[in-house]
Computed example of a mutant assay.
Amino acid sequence: MNNIKDVPVPSYYRKLANYFPAHEMKHAHQLQALVEDVPYYGLMETGEYLVLYGDFAEFLFIDYLLVNRDQRGSGVGTRLLQRLQSRNIPILLEVEPIDPNDVDTKKRRRFYERNGFALAQGVQYEREDRHGESYTMDLLYWSPSQKISDDRVLHMMTTVCRRIHNYRAMQFYGRIPAQPEEVLSLVR
């Protein structure tokens, strides 16, 4: 049996790691195991974009979405989201809070808002990175029919934590990084 350190890092992981903050990145081999072993976890990669997502019966979860740098602003991301929205089930994703000192956070938020996503204002989501440093993520959702309640967003994100973020977590982190009862809460 191969030692986990001997397994090469997939090319899609390197692309994501060059764009996303380190604290938002899963362990390379956890992500690879999700892609290769989990039937509800998908990877779509073209010359224009890369998306990794959880495909559950009741909703989709966008784990990572990356439009190649030379394709940004051309409508590729919108067409991709429209393709996912055509499934006619809610879509959930995490995005960093807007940082006034980081124009990219504002651009990402505007992109999702232009494509019909709304902030789940009543759900707080705070995790720790690999080094135990706390960070907050906002949860955005899109629904084909109506506003989604905070309770439903919490339920969907609990599923994501258990079935994606914590997938084989003890093997890769030596701990459970996204225990729903600890990282998610309703703000009333």
Rank of each mutant, 00 (worst) to 15 (best):
Ala28Cys: 09
Ala33Leu: 03
Val76Leu: 07
Leu31Arg: 02
Pro100Val: 11
Val76Gly: 07
Arg87Ser: 09
Tyr64Ser: 07
Leu31Gly: 12
Val76Asp: 10
Ala57Lys: 15
Ile91Val: 10
Glu58Gln: 15
Tyr64Phe: 14
Gly47Thr: 03
Ser86Cys: 09
Met25Tyr: 02
Pro97Arg: 04
Leu93His: 00
Asn68Ser: 10
Glu24Asn: 12
Arg72Pro: 05
Glu24His: 08
Glu24Gln: 11
Asp55Gly: 04
Ser74Glu: 14
Glu96Arg: 10
Asn88Leu: 14
Tyr19Asp: 10
Asp70Ile: 04
Asp37Leu: 14
Leu66Trp: 08
Leu52Arg: 03
Arg69Gln: 14
Tyr64Asn: 11
Phe20Ala: 08
Asn101Trp: 12
Gly54Ile: 06
Pro21Gln: 06
Tyr19Ser: 15
Ser74Met: 15
Leu81Thr: 05
Glu48Arg: 12
Gly47Glu: 14
Pro39Asn: 11
Ile62Asn: 02
Pro100Gly: 04
Val76Cys: 13
Val95Asp: 00
Phe59Lys: 02
Ala33Ser: 15
Leu52Thr: 15
Gly75Trp: 12
Ala28His: 13
Pro97Ala: 11
Ser86Pro: 09
Asp63Ala: 07
Met25Glu: 06
Asp63Leu: 01
Leu92Trp: 02
Ile62Gly: 06
Phe59Val: 03
Ile91Ser: 00
Pro21Arg: 05
Leu60Ala: 01
Asn88His: 08
Pro97Asn: 10
Ser86Gly: 14
Asn101His: 15
Glu48Asn: 11
Leu34Asp: 04
Pro97Ile: 09
Leu93Cys: 03
Leu50Pro: 07
Pro90Ile: 05
Ala33Phe: 06
Tyr64Ala: 06
Val38Asp: 04
Glu58Pro: 03
Phe20Ile: 05
Glu94Pro: 11
Glu24Pro: 09
Arg87Gln: 15
Gly75Phe: 05
Asp99Ser: 12
Ala22Cys: 07
Pro90Ala: 11
Asp37Val: 01
Leu60Gly: 02
Leu92Lys: 02
Ala33Val: 04
Met25Thr: 05
Asp102Tyr: 04
Leu65Gly: 02
Gly54Leu: 10
Ile91Asn: 00
Leu92Gln: 04
Pro21Gly: 08
Ala57Ile: 08
Asp70Asn: 13
Ser74Arg: 15
Val38Pro: 03
Pro39Leu: 07
Pro100Ser: 10
Gly73Lys: 09
Leu84Gln: 00
Pro100Thr: 11
Tyr49Glu: 07
Tyr49Thr: 01
Ile89Thr: 13
Leu34Gly: 11
Gly73Val: 09
Leu93Ile: 02
Glu45Trp: 08
Glu96Lys: 11
Thr46Ser: 15
His29Met: 12
Gln30Met: 14
Leu31Ile: 06
Ile62Ala: 02
Met44Pro: 00
Val51Lys: 02
Leu92Asn: 08
Phe56Tyr: 15
Thr46Gly: 05
Gln71Ile: 01
His23Ile: 10
Leu81Cys: 07
